[in-house]
């Protein structure tokens, strides 16, 4: 029974989509289309290309925000992890940002930067950056002392320790910080489109809601969740592949 996990996954999907279909047929609410209606709407949006145009629009602030967050997040994180002084000064800001409901900053961002792309990029950055910074700095700080000692005992310079020991040792955690950042960035990008100005997928959701075209609305939501999940899963696969040696038993097993 090698394909038992796959079979159960299919069964599980069939159960959930079946329940969706049945709930839509009853219907439990006038605003609850069936699974088949929603998928038909998705196919027709794919057919006329409108959903692809919408994604091009949605992915703009997302990609831009994530690139900025990754660049500055890893840089700041490395710095915080290496310097006690810098950690004292900047660490608390990111710790507070990590726990605080940052979505509340959106109205201010809109006032400062207007309702254009800048605000949306900022929303993505604000959501994605803290976890990237904190993962990076934590990973740098938790580099096993014994391999740092090892490098020093073999006369490594500070730069050698950073480039040959700390960064490779920290990169699995940094990468998973990036993955969590992408996940938070998706939340931010959609929030921005729903709250600031409806563009892209957010526009499809808002517009079809206002004209009560519920199948299209569900289709758009379904597609963005699907996209996010597939992308994040791919990142996780890549992560496991790249850092195979690091993850499996190192010092103590």
């Amino acid at each position: 029974m090698n394909n038992r996990p796959l079979l159960l996954k299919l069964l599980s999907a069939a159960l959930v989509f079946g329940a969706w279909e049945i709930a839509g047929r009853i219907p439990i609410s006038y605003a609850f289309p069936t699974f088949i209606e929603s998928m038909t709407a998705l196919l027709s949006m794919m057919g006329d290309g409108s959903i692809f145009l919408a994604y091009a629009e949605t992915l703009k602030p997302l990609v831009l925000g994530l690139v900025i967050s990754a660049f500055f997040g890893i840089g700041i994180g490395l710095w915080i992890g290496l310097s006690a002084r810098f950690e004292w000064l900047f660490g608390p800001i990111f710790i507070v940002m990590q726990t605080a409901p940052l979505a509340a900053l959106i109205p201010i961002l809109v006032m400062v930067y207007g309702i254009g792309l800048t605000s949306k990029v900022f929303v993505v950055c604000v959501m994605a950056m803290p976890v990237i910074v904190l993962n990076t700095s934590g990973a740098v700080r938790n580099t096993p002392q014994s391999i740092k000692d090892m490098a020093k005992s073999f006369l490594a310079s500070d730069r050698d320790v950073l480039v040959k020991i700390i960064i490779p040792a920290a990169s699995p955690i940094i990468f998973s910080g990036l993955r969590l950042g992408v996940s938070a960035g998706f939340i931010g990008a959609i929030l921005a489109e729903l709250k600031i100005t409806p563009t892209g997928v957010g526009d499809i959701i808002s517009y079809s809601r206002s004209v009560a075209d519920y199948p299209s609305m569900y289709a758009a939501i379904f597609s963005i969740i699907l996209l996010a999940v597939i992308f994040l899963n791919l990142l996780e696969k890549l992560e496991n592949y790249m850092f195979e040696g690091n993850n499996r038993g190192y010092v103590s097993d």
Binding site: R4, P5, L8, K9, L11, S12, A13, L15, V16, S29, A31, F32, S183, F186, I187, A189, I190, L191, L194, V201, I205, S206, R209, Y214, M217, Y218, I221, I224, I225, A228, V229, L232
Partner: peptide, 29 residues
């Protein structure tokens, strides 16, 4: 085990999914 195999994929999907997108649905429902 069976319950785990049936539910785990969905839990993993929702744990990383951008749940903000679901709020409009909740609003109409």
């Amino acid at each position: 085990r069976v319950l785990d195999e049936l539910l785990l994929p969905w839990v993993n999907i929702f744990i990383s999914a951008p749940l903000t997108a679901l709020v409009p649905v909740l609003m109409v429902l």
